Simulated assay, not measured.
Amino acid sequence: MVHRPVHSANTPMSSTRVWLITGASSGFGCSLVSAVLARGDRVIATSRSLQPIQNLEATSDNLRLLELDVTAGEEALKSKMKEAVAIWGRIDVLVNNAGSCHLGILEEGGSALVRRQYEVNVFGLLDVTTACLPHMRAQNEGTIVVLGSRSAWTCETIGLGAYGSSKAAVHALAETMSVELAQFNIRVLLVQPSAFRTKMVRTADNYDTSNPIEAYDGTREDNLKSYADRDGKQIGDPDKAMDAVVDVVRGEGAARGKPWPGYFLLGKEADRDVRAKCKIMTDHLDEWGDVVKSVDFDS
């Protein structure tokens, strides 16, 4: 992001912050709840249903649970956000973690697959954020954490079109929010993890095979096997990743003394793939630069 807000990563924070974390039932969300509580902050852990997070209830006096479906729509989410704010009187950090992963070949899945993916990852995220922002603006401070993905940089991958494009849209929204919200002392952190050992991707459940096209049979079979082979073998540790996110938000540990990053990539694969994509684009500009720059009106 071009914008750098007034805060630095090591800006001293008040002794206790209130975090609202969506999608807290598993994966990054569950890891983040534990990491935040370990620093002495308060957490409102949310999930579409309370049943998957009931086990968290007795873990800390600083934890409250709230049923929140990110796809419930703007008005319902505004009401939920008022309920959340009433718990401790404020929300200092909103973490947009809730998400889904729908894989599939684009011609087979079509727009129905993409719409299903965007409903949670894009529209749900935006509705939750806009429901929270009036409260943060009234406080004249806040932090929005957006869970993007390395996949936005690697959409040249069979089966990844719906999910990867939803995360690319999320990245664009976060970048715009970072400049629109700076005037209200609200920071945005766009987290972009690579493959971590969470339950986000379960190939048999997540891969769309509702409209098989014979021409893709071999491609689909190989693609399904490829995703299945990776499941459970990802090198990323979600607990370490979310501990690093808390460092950045609180300006502690690895973030102490560093400026607010805006972007926060996580994982060796993210480092590798983002560098590779940047090289593809700079190589294109080097090769085609004379044409790229030749199409404006003559001065």
Results as ranks from 00 to 15, higher is better:
228 A>I: 04
273 D>A: 13
73 G>A: 10
268 K>V: 07
153 W>I: 04
163 Y>M: 05
102 H>F: 09
65 L>G: 03
134 P>A: 11
242 M>P: 02
184 F>K: 08
249 V>P: 00
183 Q>L: 09
153 W>E: 05
279 K>V: 13
155 C>Y: 07
78 K>C: 11
152 A>I: 07
270 A>M: 05
222 D>K: 15
234 Q>I: 04
186 I>A: 03
66 L>Y: 03
259 P>V: 10
157 T>P: 02
104 G>N: 03
22 T>A: 06
68 L>N: 00
82 K>C: 09
269 E>M: 11
209 T>F: 06
206 N>V: 05
267 G>T: 04
84 A>Q: 04
17 R>I: 09
80 K>Q: 14
83 E>F: 09
26 S>W: 02
140 N>Q: 14
53 I>H: 01
245 V>D: 00
157 T>K: 09
90 R>Y: 07
189 L>G: 01
267 G>S: 06
18 V>H: 02
32 L>C: 03
244 A>L: 14
26 S>Q: 14
166 S>K: 02
167 K>Q: 05
284 H>R: 12
193 P>T: 07
229 D>Q: 14
102 H>Q: 10
209 T>L: 12
81 M>W: 06
153 W>M: 09
263 Y>V: 06
251 G>L: 05
207 Y>Q: 02
34 S>M: 09
162 A>E: 01
249 V>Y: 02
209 T>Q: 15
117 Q>T: 11
133 L>K: 06
176 T>N: 12
257 G>R: 08
198 T>S: 03
113 L>V: 05
164 G>A: 15
203 T>G: 05
91 I>A: 03
39 R>D: 14
151 S>R: 02
262 G>L: 08
165 S>M: 12
32 L>E: 00
276 A>Q: 09
170 V>M: 08
134 P>E: 11
9 A>D: 03
288 W>D: 08
83 E>D: 13
140 N>G: 10
34 S>A: 13
205 D>W: 05
187 R>D: 13
75 E>V: 13
176 T>P: 06
200 M>I: 15
2 V>W: 12
58 A>M: 08
10 N>A: 12
243 D>V: 14
231 D>A: 15
48 R>W: 06
177 M>N: 03
144 I>V: 15
193 P>E: 04
43 V>E: 00
235 I>G: 08
4 R>E: 13
112 A>F: 09
48 R>P: 06
187 R>Y: 05
173 L>H: 07
278 C>F: 14
174 A>W: 01
30 C>H: 12
137 R>D: 07
86 A>W: 07
229 D>M: 11
195 A>H: 08
220 R>P: 01
165 S>V: 11
110 G>C: 06
174 A>N: 05
207 Y>T: 00
31 S>R: 02
147 L>D: 01
150 R>P: 01
57 E>T: 11
49 S>D: 15
298 D>R: 11
190 L>E: 03
128 V>I: 11
263 Y>D: 07
226 S>T: 10
218 G>K: 08
131 A>T: 04
225 K>L: 08
188 V>D: 01
19 W>E: 00
176 T>K: 13
186 I>L: 05
193 P>N: 08
55 N>I: 06
239 D>N: 10
107 E>C: 11
